[in-house]
Write a protein that binds this DNA or RNA. Structure first.
Lengths: 222, 222
DNA sequence: GCGAGTCTGTCATCGAGGTGACAATTGCCA
DNA sequence: TGGCAATTGTCACCTCGATGACAGACTCGC
């Protein structure tokens, strides 16, 4: 229970939420356990709830009819997803599914609406969260449109490095490729380049950031 | 003055704002006239105000050191920009400059903060606005990553068609190319294709949407 | 310790779209 | 009306990254 509490007013979103509000939020949360690969929602569905990650990871992705996939975001402990559909009433814009066994908090639309009605001051705590996501999305738009793979990779590595506050990134190159929407082969080539330059160390199923400054200079090289 | 009033609680954002709040917002707005090409702010600067368009257009764009430009958004009457930097305190993520003679409302950071302090219920009206921008940005990320130029163009034309509620789009192909971050030549070729198919009519400095259904089918074609 | 499945490195081939160049067209203004 | 700048159409050439194929490396479970 202190667990849930930490999630709610720790980490990025809802930071600084007043204690009584945390309680009221906790009161409308249901805890749910998901098995690896289990879907939370799918693109195009109605949005009936938002979810916060307690433990494990959630993949947010878009997939084309032909099966090409874009990994929009790896959602980790303390992040919330699905709130946009609750606010604007429009359909889910991505698929969301668990990566490994995962524990989430679920807040249903009705309960949230009721709480927001009673406590409109809660709205303000969603603002920083939306701003953060908007900035992230805009930076992806910019990077994809204007910079070559080498720079985009460096940027993304820096993002991931900062986000997880860990120099070890644990996922296959395939996933990183899907984040950048490039082929695994092209990604592998770029990683080798970065490794040769001493910026990262690549090994089976993970990679380590060695030199942040080097990555920064790669990130701006045109 | 009724003018400003209409902008504030008309069009997409802050719709449904209660009358007294509109008054208080109007009270902290300064009206400003901009000449063609005049910059409102530049990428990397501190954000000290947000702006709403009364008349004319604002271009939001990212530019690389080498001069390649991405036209993130054409901001029109009733839209607001620059609010994200006020909320999160981080730097401007795009350049913003007037396209033609333009009239804007400016709300300074201090005044907004004061008003938000006094009237925290105002926060909730920013939420739909942020959601809308986030969805738009995510749809661009998705489209750029997963779909070929032909589909992205069709989607963008549909977006612009809906946004301006006008079947005539008045800007050179060069601008449309910068929105999609492709070369003018490639865009021209695609437009010719669409014209041959009867979806649009292309002429000097403008184009007309003729067949929305046709564009829709282009938009999903892999 | 062995085999199956996963992950990584590398190659040849191909296509979408960038680049540079140039002609044709249109609008605008003197 | 004539000239100039902006816009558009089109072409040849090139580059980046996709694709498909395959071999080697690593893990994990039996």
């Amino acid at each position: 229970m202190t667990d849930k509490r930490d999630i709610l007013h720790g980490t990025p979103l809802m930071a600084g939420l007043a204690e009584p509000l945390v309680d009221e939020l906790l009161a409308i949360c249901q805890q749910r356990r998901l098995r690896d690969g289990e879907y939370i929602y799918r693109q195009g569905e109605e949005g009936d709830a938002m979810y916060g990650v307690l433990e494990g990871k959630i993949r947010l992705s878009n997939t084309t009819r032909e099966g090409r996939e874009l990994l929009v975001m790896l959602v980790e402990r303390g992040d919330w997803i699905g709130e946009v559909s609750l606010f604007d009433g429009a359909a889910r814009s991505q698929d969301a599914y668990a990566l490994g066994d995962t524990e989430v908090l679920r807040i249903g639309k009705e309960q949230l609406d009721t709480l927001l009605e009673a406590r409109p001051e809660l709205y303000r705590y969603f603002v920083p969260m939306l701003c953060r996501k908007l900035r992230l999305a805009l930076s992806y738009v910019e990077a994809t449109a204007l910079y070559p793979l080498s720079a985009r990779l460096a940027r993304r590595l820096l993002d991931l490095h900062q986000q997880s506050a860990d120099s070890e990134l644990h996922f296959p190159q395939e996933d990183l490729a899907k984040m950048l929407a490039v082929s695994r082969q092209a990604l592998s080539r770029e990683l080798k380049r970065l490794e040769a330059a001493g910026a990262v160390a690549v090994s089976y199923g993970k990679l380590r950031i060695l030199n942040v400054d080097l990555l920064c200079s790669e990130a701006v090289a045109g």
